[in-house]
Design a protein around this nucleic acid. Structure first.
Lengths: 140, 140
DNA sequence: TATTGTTATACTCTATAACTATA
DNA sequence: TATAGTTATAGAGTATAACAATA
Protein backbone atom coordinates (compact mmCIF):
# COMPACT_ATOMS: atom_id res chain seq x y z
CA UNK A 1 0.00 0.00 0.00
CA UNK A 2 1.26 3.44 -0.93
CA UNK A 3 1.38 5.88 1.96
CA UNK A 4 1.30 9.49 0.77
CA UNK A 5 1.28 10.75 4.37
CA UNK A 6 4.32 8.98 5.68
CA UNK A 7 6.79 11.71 4.85
CA UNK A 8 4.67 14.70 5.82
CA UNK A 9 6.13 16.16 9.02
CA UNK A 10 2.88 17.90 9.85
CA UNK A 11 0.96 14.65 9.67
CA UNK A 12 3.57 12.86 11.76
CA UNK A 13 3.35 15.69 14.28
CA UNK A 14 -0.41 15.24 14.47
CA UNK A 15 -0.32 11.48 14.91
CA UNK A 16 2.48 11.55 17.46
CA UNK A 17 0.81 14.28 19.45
CA UNK A 18 -2.51 12.44 19.44
CA UNK A 19 -0.96 9.24 20.73
CA UNK A 20 1.09 10.88 23.45
CA UNK A 21 -1.99 12.79 24.54
CA UNK A 22 -4.00 9.59 24.67
CA UNK A 23 -1.36 7.97 26.86
CA UNK A 24 -1.28 10.96 29.20
CA UNK A 25 -5.08 11.13 29.31
CA UNK A 26 -5.32 7.49 30.36
CA UNK A 27 -2.73 7.90 33.11
CA UNK A 28 -4.29 11.10 34.40
CA UNK A 29 -7.70 9.47 34.28
CA UNK A 30 -6.68 7.43 37.31
CA UNK A 31 -6.51 10.72 39.21
CA UNK A 32 -9.80 11.99 37.81
CA UNK A 33 -8.02 14.60 35.74
CA UNK A 34 -7.83 15.42 32.06
CA UNK A 35 -4.72 16.86 30.40
CA UNK A 36 -6.17 20.36 30.16
CA UNK A 37 -7.20 20.33 33.81
CA UNK A 38 -3.73 19.14 34.77
CA UNK A 39 -2.09 22.00 32.90
CA UNK A 40 -4.35 24.49 34.68
CA UNK A 41 -3.53 23.00 38.09
CA UNK A 42 0.18 23.22 37.29
CA UNK A 43 -0.17 26.88 36.38
CA UNK A 44 -1.97 27.71 39.63
CA UNK A 45 0.50 25.70 41.69
CA UNK A 46 3.41 27.58 40.15
CA UNK A 47 1.67 30.96 40.31
CA UNK A 48 -0.52 31.26 43.41
CA UNK A 49 -3.02 34.08 43.01
CA UNK A 50 -3.05 33.90 39.22
CA UNK A 51 -6.35 34.82 37.59
CA UNK A 52 -8.51 32.78 35.28
CA UNK A 53 -7.88 35.10 32.34
CA UNK A 54 -4.12 35.01 32.84
CA UNK A 55 -4.17 31.23 32.73
CA UNK A 56 -6.34 31.28 29.64
CA UNK A 57 -4.05 33.67 27.81
CA UNK A 58 -1.01 31.62 28.72
CA UNK A 59 -2.41 28.22 27.81
CA UNK A 60 -4.41 29.58 24.87
CA UNK A 61 -7.75 28.53 26.31
CA UNK A 62 -10.70 30.76 25.46
CA UNK A 63 -12.32 32.43 28.44
CA UNK A 64 -15.63 30.79 27.55
CA UNK A 65 -13.95 27.43 28.03
CA UNK A 66 -12.06 28.43 31.16
CA UNK A 67 -15.27 29.08 33.10
CA UNK A 68 -16.61 25.51 33.31
CA UNK A 69 -13.08 24.14 33.60
CA UNK A 70 -12.28 26.23 36.68
CA UNK A 71 -15.78 25.66 38.02
CA UNK A 72 -15.30 21.93 37.99
CA UNK A 73 -11.94 22.08 39.79
CA UNK A 74 -13.40 24.53 42.29
CA UNK A 75 -16.27 22.18 43.11
CA UNK A 76 -13.72 19.47 43.89
CA UNK A 77 -12.21 21.84 46.46
CA UNK A 78 -8.89 21.87 44.65
CA UNK A 79 -8.61 25.67 44.77
CA UNK A 80 -10.04 28.74 46.39
CA UNK A 81 -10.69 32.16 44.93
CA UNK A 82 -9.77 35.47 46.49
CA UNK A 83 -11.17 38.67 45.08
CA UNK A 84 -8.54 40.72 43.25
CA UNK A 85 -10.86 43.42 41.98
CA UNK A 86 -14.50 43.55 41.09
CA UNK A 87 -14.00 41.44 38.02
CA UNK A 88 -11.40 38.84 38.79
CA UNK A 89 -10.38 36.36 41.45
CA UNK A 90 -6.89 35.15 42.27
CA UNK A 91 -6.69 31.37 42.32
CA UNK A 92 -4.70 29.35 44.83
CA UNK A 93 -4.61 25.60 45.37
CA UNK A 94 -6.06 24.21 48.57
CA UNK A 95 -4.25 21.53 50.55
CA UNK A 96 -6.25 18.96 48.58
CA UNK A 97 -5.27 20.67 45.36
CA UNK A 98 -1.61 20.74 46.31
CA UNK A 99 -1.64 17.05 47.13
CA UNK A 100 -3.34 16.17 43.86
CA UNK A 101 -0.90 18.42 42.04
CA UNK A 102 2.00 16.49 43.48
CA UNK A 103 0.63 13.14 42.34
CA UNK A 104 -0.40 14.54 38.97
CA UNK A 105 2.97 16.15 38.36
CA UNK A 106 4.62 12.82 38.96
CA UNK A 107 2.47 11.22 36.28
CA UNK A 108 3.22 14.05 33.87
CA UNK A 109 6.94 13.77 34.47
CA UNK A 110 6.79 10.02 33.88
CA UNK A 111 4.99 10.50 30.58
CA UNK A 112 7.40 13.18 29.50
CA UNK A 113 10.36 10.98 30.35
CA UNK A 114 8.85 8.08 28.41
CA UNK A 115 8.40 10.34 25.41
CA UNK A 116 11.95 11.61 25.49
CA UNK A 117 13.23 8.08 25.93
CA UNK A 118 11.77 7.13 22.53
CA UNK A 119 13.94 9.72 20.79
CA UNK A 120 17.46 8.68 19.81
CA UNK A 121 19.77 10.37 22.27
CA UNK A 122 21.61 12.25 19.54
CA UNK A 123 18.40 13.86 18.28
CA UNK A 124 16.85 14.95 21.53
CA UNK A 125 18.29 18.42 21.76
CA UNK A 126 17.53 19.25 18.14
CA UNK A 127 14.00 17.92 18.54
CA UNK A 128 13.26 20.16 21.50
CA UNK A 129 14.81 23.17 19.82
CA UNK A 130 12.83 22.51 16.67
CA UNK A 131 9.59 22.36 18.68
CA UNK A 132 10.44 25.65 20.37
CA UNK A 133 11.24 27.19 16.99
CA UNK A 134 7.91 26.13 15.52
CA UNK A 135 6.10 27.24 18.64
CA UNK A 136 7.65 30.66 19.23
CA UNK A 137 6.22 32.74 16.40
CA UNK A 138 2.75 33.79 17.40
CA UNK A 139 2.04 34.48 13.73
CA UNK A 140 -0.69 33.01 11.59
CA UNK B 1 4.93 34.49 35.62
CA UNK B 2 6.39 31.07 36.19
CA UNK B 3 5.71 28.62 33.37
CA UNK B 4 5.96 25.02 34.54
CA UNK B 5 4.99 23.76 31.08
CA UNK B 6 7.55 25.54 29.01
CA UNK B 7 10.14 22.81 29.14
CA UNK B 8 7.84 19.83 28.78
CA UNK B 9 8.38 18.38 25.29
CA UNK B 10 5.03 16.62 25.35
CA UNK B 11 3.22 19.86 26.06
CA UNK B 12 5.15 21.67 23.35
CA UNK B 13 4.28 18.84 20.98
CA UNK B 14 0.60 19.27 21.80
CA UNK B 15 0.55 23.03 21.36
CA UNK B 16 2.57 22.97 18.16
CA UNK B 17 0.42 20.22 16.68
CA UNK B 18 -2.78 22.05 17.60
CA UNK B 19 -1.65 25.25 15.95
CA UNK B 20 -0.41 23.62 12.77
CA UNK B 21 -3.67 21.69 12.55
CA UNK B 22 -5.65 24.89 12.98
CA UNK B 23 -3.70 26.52 10.15
CA UNK B 24 -4.25 23.52 7.88
CA UNK B 25 -7.93 23.33 8.80
CA UNK B 26 -8.45 26.96 7.88
CA UNK B 27 -6.72 26.57 4.53
CA UNK B 28 -8.57 23.35 3.71
CA UNK B 29 -11.82 24.96 4.76
CA UNK B 30 -11.68 27.01 1.56
CA UNK B 31 -12.03 23.72 -0.32
CA UNK B 32 -14.79 22.44 1.93
CA UNK B 33 -12.51 19.83 3.44
CA UNK B 34 -11.31 19.02 6.92
CA UNK B 35 -7.86 17.60 7.66
CA UNK B 36 -9.18 14.10 8.31
CA UNK B 37 -11.17 14.12 5.07
CA UNK B 38 -8.11 15.31 3.19
CA UNK B 39 -6.01 12.46 4.55
CA UNK B 40 -8.67 9.96 3.46
CA UNK B 41 -8.81 11.44 -0.04
CA UNK B 42 -5.02 11.24 -0.30
CA UNK B 43 -5.10 7.58 0.70
CA UNK B 44 -7.71 6.74 -1.95
CA UNK B 45 -5.92 8.75 -4.62
CA UNK B 46 -2.68 6.91 -3.93
CA UNK B 47 -4.39 3.51 -3.60
CA UNK B 48 -7.36 3.21 -5.98
CA UNK B 49 -9.62 0.36 -4.91
CA UNK B 50 -8.63 0.55 -1.24
CA UNK B 51 -11.37 -0.38 1.21
CA UNK B 52 -12.80 1.66 4.04
CA UNK B 53 -11.40 -0.66 6.68
CA UNK B 54 -7.91 -0.56 5.16
CA UNK B 55 -7.93 3.23 5.28
CA UNK B 56 -9.17 3.17 8.85
CA UNK B 57 -6.46 0.80 9.99
CA UNK B 58 -3.78 2.85 8.27
CA UNK B 59 -4.90 6.26 9.54
CA UNK B 60 -6.02 4.89 12.90
CA UNK B 61 -9.63 5.92 12.43
CA UNK B 62 -12.21 3.65 14.07
CA UNK B 63 -14.59 1.98 11.64
CA UNK B 64 -17.54 3.58 13.43
CA UNK B 65 -16.08 6.96 12.50
CA UNK B 66 -15.11 5.97 8.97
CA UNK B 67 -18.72 5.31 7.99
CA UNK B 68 -20.08 8.88 8.16
CA UNK B 69 -16.77 10.27 6.92
CA UNK B 70 -16.84 8.18 3.73
CA UNK B 71 -20.58 8.74 3.39
CA UNK B 72 -20.12 12.48 3.28
CA UNK B 73 -17.39 12.34 0.64
CA UNK B 74 -19.47 9.88 -1.37
CA UNK B 75 -22.46 12.22 -1.37
CA UNK B 76 -20.24 14.92 -2.82
CA UNK B 77 -19.48 12.56 -5.71
CA UNK B 78 -15.78 12.57 -4.86
CA UNK B 79 -15.53 8.77 -5.08
CA UNK B 80 -17.34 5.69 -6.24
CA UNK B 81 -17.54 2.27 -4.64
CA UNK B 82 -17.07 -1.04 -6.40
CA UNK B 83 -18.02 -4.24 -4.68
CA UNK B 84 -14.96 -6.25 -3.63
CA UNK B 85 -16.84 -8.98 -1.76
CA UNK B 86 -20.13 -9.10 0.06
CA UNK B 87 -18.84 -6.99 2.90
CA UNK B 88 -16.52 -4.38 1.46
CA UNK B 89 -16.29 -1.92 -1.40
CA UNK B 90 -13.17 -0.70 -3.17
CA UNK B 91 -13.00 3.07 -3.23
CA UNK B 92 -11.78 5.10 -6.20
CA UNK B 93 -11.85 8.84 -6.76
CA UNK B 94 -14.13 10.23 -9.44
CA UNK B 95 -12.94 12.90 -11.84
CA UNK B 96 -14.33 15.47 -9.41
CA UNK B 97 -12.50 13.76 -6.57
CA UNK B 98 -9.24 13.71 -8.49
CA UNK B 99 -9.50 17.39 -9.26
CA UNK B 100 -10.23 18.28 -5.65
CA UNK B 101 -7.39 16.03 -4.55
CA UNK B 102 -4.99 17.98 -6.75
CA UNK B 103 -6.00 21.30 -5.28
CA UNK B 104 -6.07 19.92 -1.76
CA UNK B 105 -2.66 18.31 -2.09
CA UNK B 106 -1.23 21.65 -3.14
CA UNK B 107 -2.59 23.26 0.03
CA UNK B 108 -1.20 20.43 2.15
CA UNK B 109 2.23 20.73 0.56
CA UNK B 110 2.23 24.48 1.16
CA UNK B 111 1.39 24.01 4.83
CA UNK B 112 4.02 21.32 5.22
CA UNK B 113 6.62 23.56 3.59
CA UNK B 114 5.66 26.45 5.87
CA UNK B 115 6.07 24.20 8.88
CA UNK B 116 9.49 22.94 7.83
CA UNK B 117 10.57 26.49 7.08
CA UNK B 118 10.08 27.42 10.73
CA UNK B 119 12.66 24.84 11.84
CA UNK B 120 16.30 25.91 11.82
CA UNK B 121 17.87 24.22 8.82
CA UNK B 122 20.40 22.36 10.95
CA UNK B 123 17.67 20.73 13.04
CA UNK B 124 15.28 19.64 10.33
CA UNK B 125 16.61 16.17 9.72
CA UNK B 126 16.88 15.34 13.41
CA UNK B 127 13.37 16.66 13.99
CA UNK B 128 11.87 14.42 11.33
CA UNK B 129 13.82 11.40 12.52
CA UNK B 130 12.76 12.05 16.09
CA UNK B 131 9.11 12.19 15.03
CA UNK B 132 9.46 8.91 13.18
CA UNK B 133 11.17 7.37 16.20
CA UNK B 134 8.36 8.41 18.52
CA UNK B 135 5.79 7.30 15.98
CA UNK B 136 7.11 3.91 14.97
CA UNK B 137 6.53 1.79 18.05
CA UNK B 138 2.89 0.75 18.10
CA UNK B 139 3.29 0.13 21.81
CA UNK B 140 1.60 2.04 24.54
C1' DT C 1 -15.58 -17.01 14.92
C1' DA C 2 -13.73 -12.99 12.84
C1' DT C 3 -14.37 -9.10 9.75
C1' DT C 4 -16.87 -5.22 7.35
C1' DG C 5 -19.78 -1.77 7.69
C1' DT C 6 -23.34 0.72 10.16
C1' DT C 7 -26.10 3.35 13.78
C1' DA C 8 -26.44 5.52 18.06
C1' DT C 9 -24.36 7.80 21.61
C1' DA C 10 -21.13 10.28 24.55
C1' DC C 11 -16.96 12.75 25.80
C1' DT C 12 -13.09 16.14 25.13
C1' DC C 13 -11.46 20.08 23.18
C1' DT C 14 -12.37 24.00 20.69
C1' DA C 15 -15.06 28.00 18.65
C1' DT C 16 -18.55 31.75 18.45
C1' DA C 17 -22.09 34.73 20.00
C1' DA C 18 -24.34 37.18 23.51
C1' DC C 19 -24.54 38.82 27.99
C1' DT C 20 -23.40 41.05 32.84
C1' DA C 21 -20.41 43.48 35.69
C1' DT C 22 -16.42 46.10 36.31
C1' DA C 23 -12.31 49.03 34.93
C1' DT D 1 -14.23 51.29 25.39
C1' DA D 2 -11.93 47.45 27.05
C1' DT D 3 -11.58 43.57 30.20
C1' DA D 4 -13.23 39.50 33.29
C1' DG D 5 -16.22 36.20 33.69
C1' DT D 6 -20.30 33.57 32.35
C1' DT D 7 -23.86 30.94 29.61
C1' DA D 8 -25.45 28.63 25.67
C1' DT D 9 -24.45 26.33 21.67
C1' DA D 10 -22.09 24.06 17.98
C1' DG D 11 -18.47 21.70 15.59
C1' DA D 12 -14.61 18.30 15.04
C1' DG D 13 -12.33 14.33 16.60
C1' DT D 14 -12.53 10.31 19.13
C1' DA D 15 -14.54 6.31 21.87
C1' DT D 16 -17.64 2.41 23.07
C1' DA D 17 -21.57 -0.60 22.47
C1' DA D 18 -24.57 -3.01 19.71
C1' DC D 19 -25.98 -4.88 15.46
C1' DA D 20 -26.49 -7.09 10.51
C1' DA D 21 -24.32 -9.23 6.81
C1' DT D 22 -20.61 -11.79 5.18
C1' DA D 23 -16.25 -14.54 5.32
Amino acid sequence: MVDPLKDLPGYALRRVSAREMAILARRLGALGLRPTEASVLMMIAANPGITQSEIGRHLDIASANMAPLIGKLFKRNLMHRERVDGRSHGLTLTETGLQLNERMSKVVRQCEAALVAKIPRTHRKAFLQALQAIWSPEQD
